[in-house]
């Protein structure tokens, strides 16, 4: 379960005349286990900001964020890193990897990091890459030269290969064709069946209708 209690967020931009931009005030929100909540609102309304706070990527100016009853805004960094590495998957639109590392290694490393045996991790990575229609001849190449849609699927694979109880999805399907969107939806459905708690941002209304249990317009938090 994820709970946001009285969350406010503002940015102080010292390099730009110390401008202060307030994004949210007193946000209260609960996302239950096994539920998929979709954030909606136009570009710039703060969907990503809210999600990044839940991931510990942005610091709230005030309030608390509870993941499994642990307030991630108050714990030490090692514990936060542990929660991120073992409990939460974050999939953004953009793939960020060390150059020259192969696709296969990027995807399997996620599991190896969590303690899986190498052979097992490679087998699971192959299965997932196959499912997501990444041609086998690309597996030993770095994804940095791949198409946008392929990179996005690698990004999905490297996170979804892990059975995290929480997923944060920031437009994971933005540059995918319909066939691949269907595949990603299948993966998300599978996560939900396993009791995974998910918060997602999807511009495509069809996708939201298909998988979201609840929609929340972040403008209501202003």
């Amino acid at each position: 379960m994820i709970e946001l209690k009285d969350i406010s967020k503002s940015f102080r931009l010292y390099t730009q005349n110390s401008a202060k931009i307030t994004v949210f005030k007193d946000v209260n929100l609960t996302v239950n286990r096994g539920e998929l909540v979709a954030f909606t609102g136009k570009s710039g309304s703060g969907k990503t900001t809210l999600m990044k706070m839940i991931y510990g990527n942005y610091l709230p100016s005030k309030g608390s964020i509870l993941v499994d009853k642990t307030d991630i805004t108050k714990i030490n960094l090692q514990d936060l890193i542990r929660i991120r590495n073992h409990k939460m998957g974050y999939i953004s639109q953009f793939l960020r990897v060390i150059p020259r590392v192969s696709t296969m290694n990027i995807v399997s490393d996620s599991l190896i990091k969590l303690g899986s045996e190498k052979e097992d991790a490679l087998a699971q990575a192959s299965e997932l890459l196959n499912f997501l229609d990444i041609p086998r001849k690309l597996w030993n190449l770095s994804p940095l030269t791949f198409s946008g849609g392929e990179q996005q699927r690698i990004n999905i694979a490297r996170a979804m290969i892990c059975n995290y109880p929480y997923f944060l999805l920031d437009e994971p399907t933005a540059s995918l064709d319909n066939k691949n969107i269907e595949k990603v939806i299948t993966l998300i459905d599978k996560l939900k069946k396993n009791g995974c708690t998910i918060i997602g941002i999807f511009h495509d209304e069809m996708i939201r209708n298909e998988i979201a249990d609840r929609e929340i317009d972040v403008n209501s938090f202003k």
Binding site: Y14, K52, N57, Y58, L59, L77, R84
Partner: peptide, 14 residues
Amino acid sequence: QGITDQVLDDPHHA
């Protein structure tokens, strides 16, 4: 100080 992406994406010090 903080987690790397937090410090780089949401820096607080001028």
